[in-house]
Design a protein around this nucleic acid. Structure first.
Length: 268
DNA sequence: ATAAGTGTTGCGCA
DNA sequence: CTGCGCAACACTTA
């Protein structure tokens, strides 16, 4: 589950390792994850020089000399920079560079690799409609985003068009740190709840980024991140005791996603 | 061995 | 606007 911390780290790694490289060949094993035909994809990116990469929600947006490469790893996957003779077993799309290195992209379920021509980002609806990056939202902006909303807090936080980058793995501890039940109605939140929730998002993501993000994902060079189960307070800890009140952590179906909560600390 | 569950997203529908 | 069910490119666990 690449969420904001993973994508943030991958963007940083791409900037460190891919800038100035020129794409000399492209192999697409899975055309379904493209937004254009294989022919158009290759015509767009062959010969292009990699420039800056930035993170936008769960998307990686790479500028090149011939347009933009946009990647969404869906529910998990890797971007591996390897020697061409040492390709990983599984990859769906591959970019070869002139110096013998290859960027191999894989994802295990639902990913996107898109090409957008120069100046066309505004027409790429999947990224154009994203809300502000969760880590970039100030506390005042966060209050404004929530003002007048009716639904439930978890649905809002997971809605990428409202605020981008939060997924169903980090959200367990984000809500726990804020003392909020996932099904809590936004309209019942007090100002201090919103302040604390904003702080929780910042804290959780910063802690993960500081450790190189999730340890179940590989970075560009194949190393695992340092943020893992030992860093979670309630997430994926069903039946264990709450670190604050020692009540037993519960796993609950909340709408179409599963939630891990402390029934004491996160009462409705 | 078979089936359910899972980190994402867009869509249609109530 | 909000919620829900569904489907789409695997893989792990019960």
């Amino acid at each position: 589950m690449p969420e904001l911390p993973e994508i943030f780290c991958r963007a940083r790694e791409m900037n460190e390792s891919l800038r100035e490289r020129v794409i000399t060949s492209i192999e697409v094993k899975q055309p379904q994850c493209l937004n254009v035909s294989v022919e158009a994809f290759e015509a767009g990116l062959l010969g292009s020089r990699i420039d800056d990469t930035h993170q936008q929600g769960k998307w990686l947006v790479t500028d090149t000399s011939q347009g933009h490469l946009l990647i969404n790893l869906g529910m998990g996957g890797e971007l591996l920079l390897v020697e061409r003779h040492a390709l990983p077993e599984k990859w769906r799309i591959r970019f070869d560079f002139e110096d013998g290195l290859t960027l191999a992209i894989n994802f295990w379920w639902f990913g996107n690799v898109h090409y957008v021509e120069p100046g066309g980002l505004a027409n790429h609806t999947m990224t154009a409609k994203l809300g502000p990056n969760a880590m970039d939202v100030t506390v005042d902006e966060f209050h404004a985003l929530l003002a007048g909303r009716r639904g439930r807090i978890k649905s809002f936080l997971l809605d990428q068009s409202k605020i981008a980058g939060i997924g169903n793995a980090y959200i367990h501890d984000i809500l726990f740190r804020a003392g909020l039940h996932p099904l809590r109605s936004i309209s019942t939140l007090q100002d201090q709840d919103i302040d604390l929730l904003h702080q929780s998002i910042q804290d959780e993501f910063r802690r993960s980024i500081a450790k190189g993000a999730a340890n179940y994902e590989l970075n560009l060079l194949g190393a695992r991140g340092g943020f893992g189960a030992q860093d979670l307070l309630v997430g994926y800890r069903e039946g264990k005791s709450c670190p604050v009140c020692h009540a037993l952590i519960e796993k609950q179906k909340t709408g179409s996603t599963t939630s891990y909560i402390c029934p004491q600390c996160q009462a409705m």
